[in-house]
Amino acid sequence: MNAFWIILTGSLVATCCSLLGCFLILRRMAMVGDAISHAVLPGIVIAFMFTGSRDTIPMLIGAGLLGVLTTFLIEFFHRFARVQADAAIGVTFTWLFAIGIILISVFAGQVDLDQDCVLYGEIAYVPLDLIITEGGLSMGPRTVWMLAVVTLLIGLFIVLGYKELFLTTFDPAFAAAIGISTSLWYYLLMGAVSLTTVASFESVGAILVVAFLVAPPATAYLLTDDFKTMLGISVLLGTIASFAGYYLAVWLDGSIAGAIATVTGIEFLLAFLFSPTHGKLRRQKRVQTVGH
């Protein structure tokens, strides 16, 4: 049963992250996901200090606000200080993350959080934190329920806003010309990334979130030329990585999050070499057959 919950957790995180990641990588903003996943830390700590509990809702709000603040700061530095986009990202998130670390270390005695947990998470503990009804019936892990709700929200967001997200990603100038607000959809997308990040961070950690945001979409990009198919493939790849990563970790007796991230990397490498459309090896083969 534990294996089931852990794999389900991984798959839910993989689903939200890879769906949003498809939009991020096509907007050339993959690293904004990285930035948000780190920069939400002070938001989480501040929310904790205000409420004194590790309730999900205040933390989601605190982290969500910080996530949006991060994207706003990145835009601000890029546009008004005229720093390069990647430099603006680098400055913003390291700075916010560092503030979060200081907050944690200063209030270490009172805060039930630590840096390792934020970075690497502990997916293996997911099945321990169960929701138990008054009748004593176990409803399954708290994290799984939360992630299921978040996945549903993200799925709904993408289904309902598909047209606008697709258009503002492909051609923002045309979108603006026909009256679709590009900044509204930009901030909605970033809000969704913040929500996903904070909902996933305590179970899988920031690094696996970044891996899921970038690797499955990048792999899917190599495998298809159709955007909807790309969304589907990246979810599938993320889920496969959760399965394979879990059993790899069991076999190696190592970190589950680490193993899952490793599998996403291996998937990318395989797609890079063998993709029917973009694969390096396939292309060479095709050239050879033409040559002979």
Binding site: F170, A177, D226, F227, M230
Partner: peptide, 19 residues
């Protein structure tokens, strides 16, 4: 807005986009 259309410069978008 609905009565206005725009043809941007060709180079303004990424033609490797999966579409």
């Amino acid at each position: 807005y609905s009565r206005i259309s725009y043809v941007p410069q060709r180079e303004s978008v990424d033609w490797d986009f999966p579409a």
